[in-house]
Simulated scan of single mutants.
Amino acid sequence: MKKLFTLTFVLSFILSMAQTDYHFPEESSRHEGTWLQWPHHYQHGMTYRKRVEQTWVDMTKALQSGEKVHIIAYNDEEKNRIIRLLEENKVPMKNVDFKVYPTDDVWIRDNGPIFVKDNKGNVLIEDWGFNGWGEKFDFENCDEIPQKIGADLGVKVINLNEEMVNEGGSVETDGNGVLMACKSSVISQKKGAVRNKDITQKEAEEMFETYYGVSKVIWLEGVTGLDVTDMHIDGFMKFINHNTMLTMKDDDLLELGLSEKDVNTLYTATNVNGKEYKKVYVPATKNKVKTAYGKQLEEKGSYVNYYVANTVVLVPNYGDPSDKIANKIIQDQYPDRKVIGIDVRNLYENGGMVHCVTQQQPAGNLAR
């Protein structure tokens, strides 16, 4: 009887531990919808809003036929203005809805909810800390977005704010146990880039293993201070599936700022079975990016920062000769979806592209 009790206790303990297992679904998995934080003029002015918001109109139009589009508006006045703007652009509104929360900016990939599934397949929210990429910009409003969405949806929210700062664009997962990230945007302790003071690599890995459901973390060094994000991985690498990554040729990666060591780590990365990932390469833009209003920027653009939705793939486009080439390469990887080029020239001036301003909510029942 004692042995039976011990066995029952052990099994109960194992099962209870399994209840805390979480899995971050691959981006190409079925979505309930996509979340967008709409640009406004309250933080960066009217010129900023006018220059970038056509990108949001284009994304909403492309996404709404295949999934819901959840738009976060700064206030009711902005909500009404956005509705008029979408109607003027002949965007069907059946699958479009709104939440009204003040935001600091548009980068919902980094500050927004991380939707994961528990071991029963129910969807819940992880609310990681967000500190404006190491307190470079205001962040208080954006840091509250996951909790507000959770309250409105009535979904379970795991509050990790005191545990770890983690930006969604700083990690990539293959959906089968592997996560890749740059140390520079996660665990760097250099001034102006600190997300998590005194965190160790092992502690960060344990957090990722627990809350993303991975068993292997691959680190690149990255470059602190290269850009606002301190080198987010979603600018130059994306997993297509469990066995394949999409990235860029070494010359383009080196020009973007990666070290030869990081390029080698990226190219020789292996999945949970120890098999090296197959690589699909897209070019950078042929030319340095020029904004839609004529300002010449100093960097070439990346096509890797695309977003996979239910029926479409939104690919950043720049009015560059490489647009057509990159769109075709990416289209070949997603034959059951339609690639749609999204003009990001003005957005790129502010440091981001399509993936940076989208956040997927996986299909499934919500955990209460």
Rank of each mutant, 00 (worst) to 15 (best):
W35C: 02
H41G: 11
L63A: 01
S29W: 09
E53H: 07
W56G: 00
T8I: 15
K61D: 04
L15Q: 09
V69K: 04
R51M: 10
E32H: 11
A62H: 03
H44V: 11
W38G: 06
Y22E: 04
H31S: 08
Y22D: 05
Y42K: 15
E27V: 05
T55K: 03
M46F: 12
M17G: 15
H70Y: 13
K50W: 07
H31C: 02
K61F: 00
Q37H: 01
M59Y: 03
T60E: 06
L11V: 12
E67A: 10
M59V: 05
G45R: 09
Q54K: 13
Q43P: 04
G66T: 06
S65W: 08
A62W: 05
Y42D: 13
F9L: 15
F13D: 05
Q43N: 15
W56H: 01
T8H: 09
L36T: 07
L7W: 10
F9Y: 06
E53T: 07
H31E: 04
F24Y: 14
A73P: 06
E26Y: 14
L36Y: 05
P39R: 03
E32R: 10
Q54F: 08
T47A: 09
E26V: 13
V52D: 00
H40M: 07
G66R: 03
W35F: 11
T60A: 08
V69F: 03
P39C: 08
G33A: 02
R30W: 02
L63M: 08
T60R: 08
H41P: 00
F13W: 09
K68Y: 10
Y48P: 04
G45S: 05
Q37D: 06
M46K: 15
V69W: 01
I71Y: 05
I71N: 07
G66K: 04
S12V: 12
Y42F: 12
M46D: 13
G33V: 02
V69D: 02
H23W: 12
R30L: 12
R30V: 13
P39E: 03
K3H: 15
Q54C: 02
L11E: 02
D58S: 10
E27Q: 10
T6N: 11
K50T: 11
I14C: 12
T55G: 01
Q64M: 09
R51N: 12
P39A: 03
P39I: 02
Y48F: 15
H41Q: 14
M17V: 15
T8G: 14
R51E: 11
D58L: 05
Q64L: 06
E53M: 09
P39N: 03
T6L: 15
S16K: 06
G45T: 05
S28D: 06
E67L: 02
R49Q: 08
F13P: 03
L15D: 03
S12N: 08
A73Y: 02
K68W: 10
S28I: 07
Q37S: 14
T8C: 14
M17W: 13
